[in-house]
Design a protein around this nucleic acid. Structure first.
Lengths: 146, 146
DNA sequence: GTCAGTCTGTTATCATGGTAACTACATTGG
DNA sequence: CCAATGTAGTTACCATGATAACAGACTGAC
């Protein structure tokens, strides 16, 4: 992600917004701040996970499987329902996690098209290792913002 | 960009955060909401600009040149100071805008390495056409959120 | 029972983000 | 002056996002 380093001043936004007659300056300013903050935090998280040979998407995949109550595995389509990412990207990233040994795949007894994806022991270890720093990165960023 | 469709409940976050002892649940919840909102608004803006044969980055490039006081052109490096994007991506995207006729390039008399990038008439027209919908997209999104 | 329609996963291809490393020019310190 | 360093732009390559289109397996209305 990327975004403006310097947001437009409220005056500049007003120059566009009030001329056009849509929305109000405060709302637009708030949205632009949000986008810039999200971009910056996104970069910090990307860098953090990269240092652990992961990506935000890989982390989220491990996370949604791990946090599932009652079961310890999910289908690819179920992961897709939980993550707002396209099927092919999810497929590719799951393939990469399988290759790296963080996930295992087994046939779904209920549907021969599908497979069940579960964390390996190593996957659980990696997730546990990476979680504190994830929340710490978020917390530190929010602290500096306020 | 992508993100979790359903955020973890505060209870789940607490399960991680308080165990780990970094940050607090509210701050982390707020950050995750922000990331999801930014992802969703980002998708809306991507789709909006795509309908106008643009991208968010192309729009921002046009915008920062247009909003510059006193001058009507910028160097690539000056655009880079204003946008949080890498040099090669900016270069490629500027090249595309030149090819599409939205920007023109002239030599910088002060530095033979550099060039000045200015909006063409068509570039100004496109920017003006696209601005209202941009702010409208943002305003509508923020309204639905609240 | 069958076949039209849907769902699961996959492949191919493209778009757009990044880093590393380079050329050419400009600037600065001795 | 001129060598060393810095800056502007560019190239090559990789990572990670998307859509379109497909095969094969399931499902339901008849």
């Amino acid at each position: 992600m990327f975004f403006l380093r310097e947001l437009p001043t409220e005056m500049m936004i007003d120059g566009y917004v009030s001329k056009i007659g849509v929305g109000d300056v405060d709302t637009v300013s708030r949205a632009l701040s949000m986008m810039r903050d999200a971009s910056q935090l996104g970069r910090l998280l990307d860098a953090y996970f990269a240092r652990h040979n992961l990506s935000v998407l890989k982390f989220h995949i491990l996370m949604v499987i791990d946090r599932e109550p009652d079961v310890d595995s999910l289908r690819q389509s179920e992961i897709n329902q939980r993550l707002d990412v396209s099927k092919p990207v999810l497929h590719r990233t799951v393939a990469s996690l399988l290759k790296e040994g963080l996930l295992v795949r087994s046939d779904d007894p209920a549907d021969s098209r599908a497979h069940l994806l579960a964390l390996t022991h190593q996957g659980q270890t990696v997730l546990a290792d990476v979680l504190p720093g994830h929340f710490e990165t978020i917390s530190n960023f929010m602290k500096e913002k306020s």
